[in-house]
Amino acid sequence: MKITLNEDKCIGGGQCVLVAPEIFDQREEDGIGIVLDAEPPADQHRAVRDAALVCPAAAIQIQDAG
């Protein structure tokens, strides 16, 4: 799994951080989301998928490995 977050689409809602705090965070200056681990371990995949589903701006993209 590889994660990208479109900073231009992100509205800083913070839902991703609430659902997957080990994978996502927010910039201090503007609250825009950032990815802490673009290739998370398997035990985080469900949380990442849930974060993408609850993102109000649909700014999280997931690419599954091969």
Rank of each mutant, 00 (worst) to 15 (best):
D25E: 04
D30Y: 10
E7T: 14
E39M: 12
D37A: 01
V48G: 05
G14F: 13
K9M: 12
I62C: 05
A59W: 11
A65G: 03
Q61C: 05
C10A: 01
V17I: 09
D8H: 11
K9S: 08
Q26L: 13
D43H: 15
A51E: 04
R46I: 11
V35W: 00
I34Q: 09
D50E: 15
A59Q: 06
I11E: 12
I60E: 02
Q26S: 07
V17R: 07
L5S: 04
A47K: 14
E7N: 08
D64Y: 06
V48T: 06
V48K: 08
A38W: 03
Q63F: 08
G13W: 14
Q15L: 11
D37C: 01
A57D: 02
V19S: 06
K2V: 07
E39V: 15
V35S: 00
Q63W: 04
E7P: 02
D43R: 12
Q15D: 06
A38I: 05
A20F: 05
V35K: 01
A42V: 15
E28C: 05
A58G: 08
R49Q: 15
Q61N: 11
P40F: 10
L18Y: 09
I62E: 04
A42G: 03
D37L: 00
R46Q: 15
G33N: 09
I34M: 10
E22S: 08
Q61P: 00
A20N: 06
I32C: 02
Q61V: 09
C16H: 10
A57R: 03
E22H: 08
F24R: 05
Q44G: 02
P41N: 14
R46G: 06
L36F: 11
Q61L: 11
A58D: 14
G14C: 12
D50V: 12
A51Q: 08
G66H: 10
G12L: 07
E29Q: 09
P41W: 08
V35Q: 00
G31I: 11
P40C: 09
T4N: 13
A38P: 14
I62L: 15
I11F: 03
I32D: 01
L53Q: 12
P41C: 07
V35F: 01
A52S: 15
E39Q: 15
V35P: 00
Q61K: 13
A58H: 12
T4H: 12
A65P: 02
G33H: 12
L5D: 02
P40W: 11
E7L: 08
A38M: 06
G14S: 11
I3Q: 01
